[in-house]
Computed example of a mutant assay.
Amino acid sequence: MYQLQINDIDYKTFLAQYWQKKPLLIKKGFANFEDPIDPEELAGLATEECIESRIITNHQDNWEAHHGPFEQFDLLTETNSTLLVQAVDHWHPSAADLIEAFRFIPNWRIDDLMISFSTPGGGVGPHLDQYDVFIIQGQGKRHWRVGLPNANLKQFAQNKSLLQVEQFDAIIDAVLEPGDILYIPPGCPHEGYAVENALNYSVGFRAPDQKDLLSSLADHVIDTESGSKRYADPDLQLRSSIGEVAVSDKQRLKALLNSIIDDEALFSQWLGKTLSEPKHDMDLAPLELPLDLEQLLTEYDEQDIVYRAGGVRAIYQINQNDILLSVNGENFTLASHNIGAVKQLTDGNSFEFGAIISALSSLDFAQAFTKLINDGIYFID
């Protein structure tokens, strides 16, 4: 297990002074760091159809982006090239352990683990991200420059899938060595180039924008056949102009839309579903012969360990009369007294089976947990 040490400050201080405020170089954030994956394994993942990967090259200032899967790696030259593989935590359990060190940030905000391998001079160029990211230096060294947000910086497209930003003033200019970590808030320009063959691990965070949320909410309303309440104006009066949409009309229409968001049950169901949905494919292994509750209780001992599969998104909401557990886009309504067991499912990536046995006497929790086991989202070893 990786233990994160943020220089000489605790998590509370980091959140107050740096989170979404300014970048931070964390020297030896992981002491005695050992790579959980090697470049050959990373390349193996990039050959898979279901795993998103890219190779970026920058020979003589000619930037090119190539999308996987890759059958061969001649594009990954001895210099000025980078292989990037997305959502490695979904497929590589040892690499997924890196994310656990950042679980002081709420589960729903954590996105995935991207890993890159770069040859000397390789990188993706100066760019902006609209989300927080921790970049962990693995083997090798990488030279990083990071600046503060600047609305005057111009962005431009090197090609269809590589957006970069013009040169910027850096407040961090350093060469990272194994175990060093760089925290970069949204909107901070940054660029990193390998000094020697280097592995980097990027823990990214979700930051949905308004249009994404509204689009998702609209889809949920349609899918659940909700939102059937119609506009009404029983107090309509004669007007001097029939062409005007009056202030009172706009207020009624806005209230009609707001009533969807104010529907607590609908909003909670949608929120749990959308915030727990994974964006990438997953390496799940559903049981060939599904278990029922009786088999679950007889085949496993209290000391057996329950594991959450890599990349699984598990969150919960405490409502007035119940708990809404949301796992990979599926909602489970559970009795409030199961909160301890729910926290076992969401707050760690493993726990002893005995920690939830008492909750299995509750039918709703038993049905939910049995389904999660049968679907391969959790497994017992």
Rank of each mutant, 00 (worst) to 15 (best):
Q303K: 15
Q303F: 14
Q303P: 11
Q303M: 13
Q303I: 12
D304V: 14
D304K: 14
I305V: 15
I305Q: 15
I305G: 15
V306R: 13
V306L: 14
V306C: 15
Y307H: 15
Y307D: 13
R308H: 08
A309T: 11
A309L: 04
G310V: 07
G310N: 08
G310F: 00
G311M: 01
G311F: 00
G311Q: 03
G311E: 04
G311N: 02
V312C: 08
V312E: 07
A314K: 00
A314H: 00
A314F: 04
I315K: 03
Y316R: 00
Q317S: 12
Q317R: 06
Q317V: 05
I318M: 10
N319P: 02
N319M: 12
N319C: 13
Q320S: 10
Q320R: 11
Q320N: 11
Q320D: 12
N321E: 14
N321M: 11
N321F: 10
N321Y: 09
D322Y: 10
D322H: 14
I323K: 03
I323L: 14
L324M: 12
L324D: 01
L324C: 06
L325P: 04
L325M: 11
L325C: 08
S326D: 07
V327P: 03
N328S: 12
N328K: 05
N328L: 01
G329Y: 01
G329D: 10
G329A: 01
E330H: 05
E330G: 07
E330N: 09
N331S: 10
N331K: 05
N331C: 11
N331G: 09
N331A: 13
N331I: 00
N331R: 06
T333E: 13
T333L: 12
T333N: 12
L334N: 03
L334R: 08
L334W: 00
L334E: 06
A335S: 11
A335G: 06
A335H: 11
S336I: 05
H337G: 02
H337N: 09
H337Y: 07
H337E: 05
N338C: 06
N338G: 02
N338Y: 00
N338P: 04
N338S: 05
N338W: 00
